[in-house]
Design a protein around this nucleic acid. Structure first.
Lengths: 220, 220
DNA sequence: AAAAATTTTTAGATTTACCTAAAAATTTAA
DNA sequence: TTAAATTTTTAGGTAAATCTAAAAATTTTT
């Protein structure tokens, strides 16, 4: 059984490990809004519990058990986000903080029943995949919008940025999950992208285009 | 802002204050499964924060703020219990522990939307009243089943015992909330009560009868 | 391959919520 | 109304998770 804090460390390490193999102390500290010295302390504790492998000065990796624990927290977080949006009518930019709390409620029964109540969703309101109760993720085929060429089309199926400001911006432009899009132009000057939606045309900056994920339905 | 632990103390004091005016240190300790010395420490802290009035050796009472905080936690607990039973199909004897955790999730928006989603329920699965968002309880008129005379009838609307064993027992006898009952006999020997339900007759001990609450529809 | 810069760890404190043991106050009983 | 029993508080300590400041290890730069 892990404490609230231990769970947060495991989750953070899990997410950071999606980018690098050995997760560094400073990276964890920055992510968790704490100091490197505190991270070192906690890492030792997690290592003692067999949740991470740790070599001094070399960063950490999750053990099998540590990884499973982290995935379980991710699962809970994303299921609660679906609940908040689908059942309680929260907007996709409003759910993160509450889900950060709900993810720590300890009851296997609760999550299994919630999963069923929600219809066993495969993705959360931002398109992030929800692992099943065995920790397995559905395979996802995302391409960053920025990588598409003029004429390519696809469906918005995710975002790689969860800040409220970014999500509100997309909402305003009508770029929400499930929308069909086609690239009509890419501006040489600043790399901004002109996008054709079913009913209108919108222009987004290169920065925004980087964080929209598309499930492609073929090149032109 | 209160900690998880402070919230639990306030809730415990609130419930104990339903029986006695000045809540004693030992009573709190017993209820919270902790030691009197720890309670004294926490009481001082709560007094410093203006949540309880405290005179050494005389026990505590909640201040207006403390009471409102406690009522808010009770509200959250009971709403979550309704969610668990109505939406996730938990049984009424399975919800307490999970609700003990859920009641500490801090989001006003969440609870208001949950309340709406559940249809603004007035009572939880055990018949306990749910305060509205201003902390006001609907007036309830309960009589203990034990106080009814032979021939009296009414509707089961609550229980004053929440142990899983007790609730499972009632479930098995078919004595669940909303059921119409009539007292057909009270045994002189042991005070056990014979009850007529719509479809059957059941016998319950005096001890069980003490903890069933009835909204009476008149004497015979 | 030293020197400089960065990263990480250690050492020693702090805060919260506990604890035990002993002292003090209050209540009950003789 | 003392003595005994009970309740409550105080005093001193512990474990978890944090911190600052300084030391040690590693990496980068020259």
């Amino acid at each position: 059984m892990q404490s609230y804090t231990e769970e947060n460390y495991l989750k953070t390490i899990y997410h950071l490990a999606e980018r690098t193999t050995n997760v560094q102390t400073n990276a964890i500290a920055e992510q968790m809004q704490t100091k490197p010295a505190s991270v070192t302390d906690m890492i030792k504790k997690l290592a003692d519990k067999g949740l991470v492998d740790y070599i001094k000065y070399q960063g950490v990796t999750l053990t099998e058990i540590g990884k499973n624990t982290a995935i379980d927290i991710v699962r809970k977080h994303r299921l609660w986000e679906v609940f908040l949006v689908d059942k309680l009518n929260f907007k996709w930019d409003e759910v993160h903080d509450v889900a950060e709390e709900l993810e720590h409620i300890k009851s296997v029964e609760l999550i299994e029943r919630l999963d069923e109540f929600l219809g066993f969703p495969k993705a959360d309101p931002h398109g992030d995949p929800i692992p099943d109760k065995n920790g397995r993720f559905a395979k996802t085929q995302f391409i960053k919008l920025i990588e598409l060429k003029v004429g390519d089309s696809g469906t918005i199926t995710g975002v790689s940025q969860h800040s409220s400001a970014f999500l509100k911006h997309l909402e305003k432009l009508g770029l929400t999950l499930g929308k069909q899009i086609q690239i009509s132009d890419v501006t040489d000057f600043d790399g901004s992208v002109e996008i054709k939606l079913s009913d209108k045309q919108v222009n987004i900056s290169r920065e925004v285009a980087k964080h929209i994920l598309i499930s492609s339905n073929g090149k032109n």
